[in-house]
Design a binder for these strands. Structure first.
Lengths: 150, 150
DNA sequence: TATTGTTATACTCTATAACTATA
DNA sequence: TATAGTTATAGAGTATAACAATA
């Protein structure tokens, strides 16, 4: 028999109605991984968003700011300072593609940093749910992709 | 045989190296559900955070602000304006527990709103991954809980 | 007309520091 | 000493509007 516990009982088990919600668990899980990632990226001196842009350019030399924004869900207006920062730090070079758009590609320092960032991310990723097989992990990632994609 | 496509090809398939990352997929999935939830809560006039506080109080009458903050990962300092807003809108009543802490419980309007909010959330949740069994969904939620909990 | 890059700006969310009153 | 509630503030992250140049 369970007894209704007074809320002044400090160690009381709290009934969290959000606990079974997909949206709530996504928020908490995402927040936890993002906080850990931010810590990992302190070394390289990048924010998670900047790192994602760096990696996307590394894999797609010649991509434009607008294209990056569409893929990563970053507003065009918010891409400008990110691209400017990467350029000022000597990580990125811009080549005029047509009169209004410029293709982005990494300089040598950018490629080296992207490699370092990627290694950090792999370690970071492995730290979460380490007791899953690669197949199970892939299944989870595929499921999450279906939540927002398409 | 695949051919390296020029980046000036607008419909080019972009190689997104983040696509297989758990952290990235969590971020995108969480963002999509949060945006949809915010839209759902436009009616009740609450933010997702305010709604989560409302529901937690509904299920735990007498709970304190600090306790809510610990459970939902909201700073004590950020709980103050939320509790003030709910009180000013006649949703919440405060009862002095001891000299420094006050137990929170919903007023009748708060209970009614919590009920309405919960129904909205259930519809919202059902809109994502509707082609899953209840057991599959529970499995996913349990997995996500392990990502950040403990 | 639509798109690219840009600037300026506002708004939300979250984090920190400091203070008081109390335990 | 530690905790509860509060205020003030600062920093991200993100959103909108507008503009010039170009397609």
């Amino acid at each position: 028999m369970t007894v209704a516990r007074s809320r002044s009982d400090d160690s009381a088990t709290v009934d969290n109605p959000l606990d079974g919600l997909l949206g709530y668990q996504l928020r908490r899980a995402s927040g936890a991984m993002l906080a850990d990632l931010a810590h990992v990226l302190d070394g390289p001196g990048l924010t998670p968003t900047e790192a994602s842009v760096l990696l996307l350019i590394a894999h797609n030399p010649g991509i434009t700011q607008s294209e990056i924004g569409r893929i990563l869900a970053i507003q065009r207006a918010n891409m400008a300072p990110i691209a400017a920062m990467l350029t000022e730090n000597g990580l990125l070079s811009r080549t005029q593609a047509d009169g209004r758009s410029q293709g982005l590609e990494l300089r040598e320092a950018g490629r080296a940093l992207a490699e370092r960032v990627w290694e950090g991310i792999e370690t970071h990723e492995a730290g979460f749910l380490p007791d899953m097989t690669a197949a199970e992990r892939r299944g989870l990632v595929d499921l999450l992709r279906r939540v927002w994609n398409k």
